[in-house]
Amino acid sequence: MIHVTERDEVAVITIARPEKLNALTNAMRTDLAAAVREHGKSARGIVVTGTGRAFSAGEDLYEAVGKSLVTEVETFHDMTRAVLETRVPVVAAVNGLAVGGAAEWTLCFDSRIGTEAAGYFWPENHLGLSISNASSYLLPRLVGARALRLVLDSTRMTAEQAHAMGLLDELVAAEALLDAAVARVRHWTAPGTATATHLALLRPPLEEVERAFGAETAAAVEVEESGLAQAGMSRFVNRT
Rank of each mutant, 00 (worst) to 15 (best):
V151A: 06
S68V: 12
R149M: 12
L148F: 11
E160T: 13
A98N: 06
L142R: 15
A159T: 08
N95L: 09
G119R: 00
T80M: 04
E85G: 15
L61V: 13
V47M: 06
W105D: 12
V99Y: 00
F121K: 07
P123Y: 09
T115Y: 02
S130L: 04
G128Y: 05
E160A: 15
V90Q: 03
A103F: 14
A103K: 02
S111W: 04
R53H: 09
F109H: 13
A92H: 07
S135W: 03
Y62W: 13
V143K: 05
L138V: 11
L107Q: 03
R141W: 10
R141M: 14
V73W: 03
L107K: 06
V94Q: 05
L138P: 01
A159I: 09
A134H: 05
S111Y: 03
Q161N: 11
V47H: 04
D110V: 12
A147M: 03
W122N: 01
S130F: 07
L142V: 13
V91K: 03
V83L: 08
E124F: 11
A145P: 00
D110F: 09
T155K: 15
L69I: 14
G58D: 05
A147D: 04
G100W: 02
Y137D: 02
G119Y: 01
A103R: 00
T71A: 15
V73T: 15
E160I: 09
E116K: 13
G128N: 02
P89E: 10
D60H: 11
R141T: 11
N125A: 14
V99L: 06
A118M: 06
A64H: 10
L107W: 09
V65M: 08
F109Q: 02
A117D: 14
W105P: 00
E124R: 01
L150F: 06
V88Y: 00
F55W: 14
L97M: 15
M157A: 11
G128C: 09
V99F: 06
G101I: 01
A134C: 10
S154C: 10
F76G: 05
T75Y: 11
L150W: 02
A103C: 12
T51Q: 14
P123M: 08
E116H: 10
T49L: 02
S154F: 08
E72D: 14
Q161F: 01
L107A: 06
R112M: 10
P123F: 11
R156M: 15
R87G: 12
S135P: 02
F55C: 05
T71S: 14
N133M: 15
A145Q: 13
T75C: 05
G96W: 01
G101V: 07
L139A: 10
T86K: 01
S132P: 00
H77L: 10
A102K: 04
T106K: 07
L69Y: 12
V94E: 03
G58L: 07
I113V: 12
M79R: 13
G96K: 00
E116Y: 05
E124I: 00
G52C: 09
L142N: 00
E72Y: 08
L138K: 01
R149Y: 11
G96A: 10
G66N: 10
K67S: 14
L84Q: 06
A118G: 03
Y120C: 08
V48E: 00
E116F: 03
A92W: 05
G114Y: 04
V88I: 11
N95D: 05
T115M: 05
Y137P: 00
G52K: 07
E63W: 06
